[in-house]
Amino acid sequence: MVAGAYVLEYHLVNYRRTWRSSALSTLVLPLLTMLGFGVGVGSYVSGGVEGAPYLDWIVPGLIASTAVQTAIGEATWPVLSYFEWLKVYFAQAAAPLRVADILGGHLAFMAFRVLTAAAAFLVVAAVFGTIHSWWAPLTLVVSVLTGLAVAAPSVAYSSSISSDSYLAILMRFAVLPMSLFSGVFFPVESLPVVLRWAAYVLPLWHGVDLSRDAMLGLAPGWIGLLHVVYLLIWCVAGWAVAHRCFRRRLVV
């Protein structure tokens, strides 16, 4: 595990070079979404949703969605380029590191990125007065869990392809639909049955629901427990597949 920390350190040092420009997107994009969508569109949703004003209702969903976007961003192009173009993983494999260290260290870095993005959004949300519960900080835990639940399988996918065309396909046919139909912008209950079940199967909706409970101070109940377990299954299964893919490419 110590060796995994060295890998994490590598990614953090690397990140120091680019954090400035990524800080812009982690802070400014949520702010814009908040203003443009939450406030703008929200003012036209007269009745609110599920008893909460639209802005309050949408913010927790946006946080979970930001977590997923950040996780996907880190788990796709960088992974592909570390294998195909920059060969960073191969360099690491030449050092006394196990495959689990290389994978674990990178996933830990992704968790770190998700955490900072979610925290930034939470601060913006607080400024807009959309936090109504002491449980709100739990959103950060939910975000990291949701982030890892999509990051692990995405890493597995990215490590088994050779061209970025496949990433475009992942974005278009998996990530975008998931972001748009997982109860972030409107309740999944209004979806047709088939799409609703698609939302239940994918990880984001579970994160959105948990995040909403934490931000609005609602009791998650046994459904909440189910959400956590289900997200953990995505994490573990994703890890297992990613580990196999990494092994196949690094240990030959």
Partner: peptide, 25 residues
Amino acid sequence: VVMVSGFVEPVLYLFSIGVGVGALI
């Protein structure tokens, strides 16, 4: 495949925001 499927994106937005959020508005 990437090129031909490009038209899906605005359609997805239309269904999500136009229809989904539209129902609230």
